[in-house]
């Protein structure tokens, strides 16, 4: 166990910035272990029933009550909306972690590439439109907040690359609010329905579709902002 030996000596953590690789024996052992794991997994996978029992039928059965028409969206935003909520929290947390480490590196200002700027002027509105379409589409076809957010986030990155910066007025709390709007709205709606005595995240059937769309819209904004901010690599 090379690691335990080295960690027992205080003060050497720094010196191990570039740890020496394992020796030949250790490599062999690791290789054998990996092979054993592979064989075990293969055996397990081969032993699986060819047709998985799955939950597809149950989802289809309850789809009409979910407020949306597409099964994936129904699972993500309704049946297992709690998972998605926590995943949005993970995303926000990732950004929080990056921000807690360091301010954004002072990227040398890209020389305003006229080609890129021109392209952006064309692309940016188009991408925003695409994002909106994807978001709306999620209700009945593949699409939804994550796809829309990704497209929107890429727009932000492109704009950044072409030299555009957030105005001073919004890089404080408005930016932070945008980052957590998705998870915050999701949580608040989930909690609000409890006022009527229902369990957490139980949408009233009549307004389920609307609530889900609102949550998705907020999530799109947050996802986009988070992805773009992660690209900067630090606190702006």
């Amino acid at each position: 166990m090379p690691d335990t030996r080295s960690t027992s000596v205080p003060g050497t953590v720094r010196a191990r910035a570039l740890p020496a690789g394992p020796g030949p024996t250790a490599r062999l052992i690791l290789l054998l272990l990996l092979a054993a794991v592979l064989v075990g997994l293969a055996t397990a996978v081969l032993s699986l029933p060819p047709v998985a029992p799955g939950l597809g039928a149950v989802v289809t059965e309850h789809l009409p009550a979910s407020g949306v028409e597409h099964p994936v969206t129904a699972v993500l935003l309704n049946f297992r909306g709690y998972d998605t909520l926590l995943e949005l929290a993970v995303l926000w947390l990732a950004l929080l972690a990056v921000w807690s480490l360091t301010p954004a590196p002072l990227a040398h200002e890209p020389t305003a590439n006229p080609m890129l700027a021109a392209l952006n002027q064309l692309l940016a509105p188009l991408m925003i439109l695409v994002a909106g379409y994807l978001l709306w589409n999620g209700g009945h076809a593949p699409g939804g907040a994550f796809q829309a957010g990704a497209v929107l986030g890429a727009t932000g990155v492109l704009l950044h690359l072409s030299g555009r910066r957030l105005p001073r007025a919004v890089d404080g709390w408005p930016l932070r609010l945008a980052l957590l709007l998705g998870v915050a709205l999701f949580s608040l709606i989930g909690l609000a329905v409890m006022a009527g005595g229902a369990p957490f995240l139980t949408y009233p059937p009549a307004s389920a579709g609307g609530l889900i769309l609102a949550i998705e819209a907020a999530a799109t904004l947050s996802i986009a902002a988070t992805l773009a901010a992660l690209f900067l690599g630090g606190r702006p």
């Binding site: 149950v58 989802v59 309704n78 909306g81 998972d83 229902a198 369990p199 957490f200 995240l201 139980t202």
Partner: peptide, 13 residues
């Protein structure tokens, strides 16, 4: 047990 979203297992969490 608390059924989040009111669905209950196996559909919900």
């Amino acid at each position: 047990n608390i059924r989040i979203g009111g669905w209950g297992a196996p559909l919900g969490i």
